[in-house]
Design a protein around this nucleic acid. Sequence first.
DNA 1: TCCTCCGTTTCAATATATGAAATGACATTT
DNA 2: AAATGTCATTTCATATATTGAAACGGAGGA
Lengths: 266, 266
Amino acid sequence: MENPSTLVEGHFPYKGKWGMNQSVVKALNMLELFTEDVDELTLKEIAIKANLPKPTAYRLLSSLEAMGYVHKLKNSEHDSRYRLGLKLLELGQLVADQLEVRKTALPFMESLAEQINEAVHLVIVNQHEATYIEKVESNKALRLYTRIGKSSPLYIGSGPKLLLAYLPEDEQEAIVTKTNNERLAQELMLIRERGYAFSIGEQDTDTTGISYPIYDHRNQVIAALTVSGLSSYFIGENLELIKEKTLQTAMDISNKLGYRSQLRKE
Amino acid sequence: MENPSTLVEGHFPYKGKWGMNQSVVKALNMLELFTEDVDELTLKEIAIKANLPKPTAYRLLSSLEAMGYVHKLKNSEHDSRYRLGLKLLELGQLVADQLEVRKTALPFMESLAEQINEAVHLVIVNQHEATYIEKVESNKALRLYTRIGKSSPLYIGSGPKLLLAYLPEDEQEAIVTKTNNERLAQELMLIRERGYAFSIGEQDTDTTGISYPIYDHRNQVIAALTVSGLSSYFIGENLELIKEKTLQTAMDISNKLGYRSQLRKE
DNA sequence: TCCTCCGTTTCAATATATGAAATGACATTT
DNA sequence: AAATGTCATTTCATATATTGAAACGGAGGA
């Protein structure tokens, strides 16, 4: 074993890091085989999907099961099915409670959603991606499909782009360079000038989003407050109302977080 | 290594299971060091609390970090702090969405909480314990402290006891025997007779809870609908109102789940 | 009855995790 | 300004825990 990294890189997408525990990576990878549509899997299915020998998958699943991360339903001796375990519900709840911005913003988001009757989202930066950490839906029949905890690139959608616009220069540049999109840099500048981000049909066709920054007590942007819905609603007078209410809400949240808007010295 | 189990049993509380992956168990154990009060930990703290050598803890944390289960904040080269990662938010959300009862019950729970203005909980059986999978709070100043995803023994509190009462006989007996509580068996019989469970000051002094069963399409009890609050509200006319509304809600949820109450043949 | 399919166990081989010790980078004290 | 202490991180020889092919045994179908 001259170069351990080749082994790791050969098997997993999580390359580069040496000294990582392979069993842990394999086990956690198995958890990601479960999705909305796939809430039950057999050992065989898991072994195949995870590209692991059956006994290995079996042992890793046993460990996950012992810790409550998966749950095994035995229909009969040779028909077992795995589901995600409730330990994940507990930890997910804990993470949600540990996100200060989220806890602070939620009641304001609910109020805003009621005022304008569009979906309201809260987005933060995480590991060079944008992560949706809270949402309040409109009560319209047609609803955006979004999922809390999911991430997207920082250059798609009004929330992500707003966050990108307020990132430290070096990080921002690294991402802009990668996208190879010349207009993006200009757009980010425009976002900072106007104080909000706009996107039409980026995440989904037919959908428009508008996002305002949320500041913390250090006067730094830590989240984006996003309103989104069918593009046809985001025009004229109604758009002005949305902008006004959303800005106001973003400010309310920021103030609650200790933000003090600087008085300009002219 | 004559008997591998001694090794495993010596180190972890998850005894008995051979062929479990120790690294996975150790890694997941580290996640449980985080609590409401402890949302940040240094490597040193984790190593000590998890009873692991620092390099081992370091490597396991690196694996968890690569998978998004923890997040490392580097304040400086030698001052890093770990937090739970947003991957857990995503998976927790997924688990929540995969719990059919929970999804079905939530709107009914909200309506009930509004009608009676007390906390409403949804409890299920999981691994011989009772797990709280949803809650809707009252808007009273004094609120019960509960946490979604948390488990408690099946013989404490009205929700757990109701679930215990409707468990298959063998499982029920196993638990009743363990508690060594003679009155418990009688109480469980009473619960089945009356169709609801009652508890005063069991989870917390000053708190009373009342629980009704929720049935699925197989006419089996799969969850408990629990209303709880300050004992002083659970008396007289108000108690009757609570009982009536809660029973009705439990039935509504059951019906939505496909329950068809059997017509008694007399 | 035979055959197939699954989850589970076995066991020898070895890849992999291990942890004491060293490192380097900073902060605090002397 | 030098010395000491503290922390995260890396190194490396060693042994242990993981590995997976093969076998097992029970269930169900042909």
